[in-house]
C-alpha cells in the first residue's frame, strides 16, 4: 500500500510540474510581452515599466522560470495586475464557496443517482428501466448553465422562493444554505444522470458474478449480499468517477457561478480573463489543477483501500 501511494503521488507531482512548465511557456509563445498584454491599450510607458519590474520580466528567462517555480512552491502565485493583492489570498477567499457548491452538488447527485441506479437494477428490463435510461442520458445532455438560467427564471424571478444572486451573508448559515440550492441543483443534475447509469451498470455486472452465486448458495440474505458483497465492488467505479467529476464540476461551476453572480473560483477566473489579468488566471488555474490532482490521487488511494487487487498491481 505504501509503495503504491508513493508511486501514485510521485506521478501527480510530475504531472503538476509539467503543467506549470506548459502554463509558463504559453505566455512566452504568444507575440508581445505579458505586461502590455495585461495592460492592453490603456498601457502608458510608466505603468508598463513598473509592471515589468514588479513581475520580474526584466530578468533573464531562466531566472524568471526559477523564480516562478520557487515562488509557487512557497505558495506565492504572483500578484493581481490591478489591485496588487496576492493571487493566493484572492483564491483562498472565494475557494470555500466553490468547494461548498461542489460538495453539495455532488452530494445530492450521489444520493439521487445511486438511488435511481439501484431502482433501475431492481426493475431491470422493464419500462421503468428504459424510462430511467432515457432520463439519465437527457440529464447528462442538458448544459448545466441552461438549467441554471431556467431555474433562476422559475424559482428566483417568477416564484421568488430563493435568492437569485450571491452566496448568502457570511456567518448566516440559513442564507448561505438558501443561496447554494439553485446552483447546486443546476450542477448536480448532470451527475444524477452519470451516477444512475454508472451504478446500474456496475451493480448489474457485480450481481452476475460467480461469487454472488456462492454467497447465495451459502444462504446469505439478499440484503446482506447487496450491502456487503456487491456494493463494495460496485462502488469502486463510482469513487473513481466522482474524482473525475470534481474536475468536471469545476467547469460547470465557472458558468453556473456567473449566472448566479456567486463569488467563487469561477467568477474570479472569468472576470480575470475578461480583464486579461493573467497572473490571476495562471494562479487560479495552477491552484485548481493542484487541487484536482489531489482529489484524483486521493480517490485512487481510496480505491486501492477498497480493492486489494489494485494495490498489488503496483507492488510488483
Amino acid at each position: 500500500m505504501l509503495t503504491y501511494a508513493v508511486k501514485r503521488i510521485g506521478l501527480a507531482v510530475v504531472i503538476l510540474f509539467t503543467v506549470m512548465l506548459a502554463m509558463y511557456a504559453m505566455v512566452f509563445l504568444v507575440p508581445g510581452d505579458p505586461a502590455s498584454l495585461a495592460l492592453g491599450p490603456r498601457a502608458t510607458p510608466a505603468l508598463k515599466a513598473e509592471l515589468i519590474a514588479r513581475m520580474g520580466l526584466d530578468q533573464p528567462v531562466q531566472v524568471q522560470v526559477w523564480n516562478f517555480f520557487a515562488n509557487a512552491l512557497q505558495g506565492n502565485l504572483g500578484y493581481d495586475v490591478w489591485s496588487k493583492k496576492p493571487v493566493l489570498d484572492q483564491i483562498l477567499e472565494v475557494f470555500p464557496n466553490t468547494l461548498i457548491l461542489g460538495v453539495v452538488a455532488l452530494g445530492w447527485a450521489l444520493v439521487l443517482g445511486v438511488a435511481l441506479g439501484c431502482l433501475a437494477v431492481v426493475w431491470r428490463g422493464t419500462l421503468v428501466d428504459t424510462a430511467l435510461g432515457i432520463l439519465s442520458v437527457s440529464m447528462i445532455a442538458v448544459p448545466s448553465f441552461v438549467i441554471a438560467l431556467y431555474s433562476l427564471l422559475v424559482f428566483a424571478v417568477w416564484l421568488n422562493w430563493l435568492p437569485a444572486v450571491g452566496a448568502g451573508t457570511p456567518g448566516d448559515w440559513g442564507s448561505q444554505a438558501r443561496a447554494v440550492i439553485l446552483p447546486a441543483f443546476a450542477i448536480g443534475i448532470t451527475w444524477v444522470g452519470y451516477l444512475a447509469r454508472l451504478v446500474r451498470a456496475s451493480m448489474l455486472e457485480v450481481m452476475g458474478a460467480n461469487h454472488i452465486r456462492t454467497a447465495r448458495a451459502f444462504g446469505l440474505s439478499e440484503a446482506r449480499i447487496v450491502t456487503r458483497y456487491a456494493l463494495r465492488l460496485a462502488i469502486i467505479p463510482t469513487v473513481a468517477i466522482l474524482a473525475v467529476g470534481f474536475g468536471a464540476i469545476l467547469s460547470s461551476a465557472v458558468f453556473v457561478e456567473t449566472v448566479f453572480s456567486r463569488p467563487g473560483i469561477g467568477t474570479l477566473i472569468t472576470s480575470a480573463v475578461a480583464k486579461r489579468n493573467y497572473p490571476v488566471v495562471m494562479g487560479t488555474t495552477l491552484f485548481m489543477t493542484a487541487f484536482y490532482l489531489f482529489v484524483v490521487t486521493a480517490a485512487d488511494l481510496i480505491i486501492a483501500r477498497l480493492d486489494p487487487r489494485v494495490r498489488d498491481v503496483f507492488r510488483g
Partner: peptide, 16 residues
C-alpha cells in the same frame, strides 16, 4: 446442502 464451485478464483469475493 452446500456446494464446491467449479472455479474457486471467481467463486469467492475478491474484496473480502
Amino acid at each position: 446442502v452446500a456446494m464446491v464451485f467449479q472455479d474457486p478464483m471467481t467463486a469467492f469475493n475478491p474484496v473480502l
